[in-house]
């Protein structure tokens, strides 16, 4: 049974790759890789590589699948790196950027580097070349993560790094162009207790850019309302509590958010009377 599927997979993906199209069919090796079916994807790319050995797309796909195919060994990572290195100079911008990004990821999380400075520079370069592209943004996010979580840094150092990246993130015309920068700053700023007035704009910008993960969106809406309340901006807190309740009527937090909303309303009513 399994062999039959594998056979169909190989036939399907070879045809698909020859046509250089991303089919929706589950036999598409890129889709197999996206679903963490690493060895099936790698097999399919290998079959395709026999027909078109110099195709950069196929080589990239093979490296992408091989990167996480168990057992992940040093030798396999080395194989992947040697495949990605020439691709990083490809004339195709997407292939080159993907290869460079993955090389940075290998150096960052799969090798024992003594200093993250070089990895930071690689991410920064990828980000600065195409800052609004998805992988450019993701590289920017990793640069922020390295910058704000440096071991031995003081709180002042982290606040300075936060300010620096905050200024860069708000330089873009739309929050969507810096959505992953805002996401990283919203989360790291929260971990490192950056003051609410500086943190909340990033939560809001990330929400405005269109957070896809529902659970993350719910948590950010809750946090934004809560921190706005803490900051003493009651009229905005009121709106944000209401937004949470309206957007998430089945959430287990509706009760407490409704109570906090009532608290803020009472404070505002009291203020308007006096």
């Amino acid at each position: 049974m399994r062999h039959r599927y594998r056979f169909l997979t190989i036939i399907g993906c070879t045809c698909g790759l020859l046509l250089a199209k991303a089919e929706e069919s589950p036999s598409n090796p890129w889709e197999l890789a996206s679903r963490m079916l690493f060895d099936d994807a790698r097999n399919a790319f290998e079959v395709a590589r026999e027909s078109v050995p110099t195709d950069e797309t196929v080589s990239l796909g093979w490296a992408v699948a091989r990167l996480n195919e168990p057992p992940v060994t040093r030798a396999r990572i080395e194989q992947v790196r040697s495949t990605l290195e020439p691709l990083s100079a490809s004339a195709d911008a997407t292939i080159a950027q993907t290869a460079r990004y993955l090389l940075a990821r290998i150096a960052h999380t799969r090798e024992n580097v003594s200093s993250l400075d070089e990895v930071y520079r690689d991410y920064l370069e990828i980000h600065e070349e195409r800052p609004t592209s998805p992988l450019g943004q993701l590289a920017g996010a990793h640069a922020i993560i390295i910058d704000l979580t440096r071991k031995g840094a003081s709180q002042a150092d982290r606040e300075q790094a936060f300010e620096h990246w905050s200024e860069r993130a708000f330089r873009f015309d739309s929050p969507e162009d810096a959505r992953h920068l805002h996401q990283s700053l919203a989360k790291l700023g929260w971990h490192y207790k950056i003051e609410n007035e500086k943190l909340i704009p990033h939560i809001e910008a990330f929400l405005e850019s269109g957070v896809v993960t529902k659970r993350l969106r719910r948590d950010l809406e809750a946090r934004s309302a809560w921190l706005t309340h803490e900051s003493g901006d009651y009229p905005t807190a009121l709106q944000r509590y209401q937004r949470f309740i309206d957007n998430n009527p089945d959430d287990a937090r509706v009760k407490i958010m409704s109570e906090r909303l009532a608290e803020v309303s009472a404070l505002l009513a009291q203020a308007s009377r006096s």
Partner: peptide, 12 residues
């Protein structure tokens, strides 16, 4: 593991 997923979805 998400490195593979992201690169694949980016290509797709």
């Amino acid at each position: 593991r998400q490195d593979t997923t992201i690169a694949s979805l980016h290509f797709l």
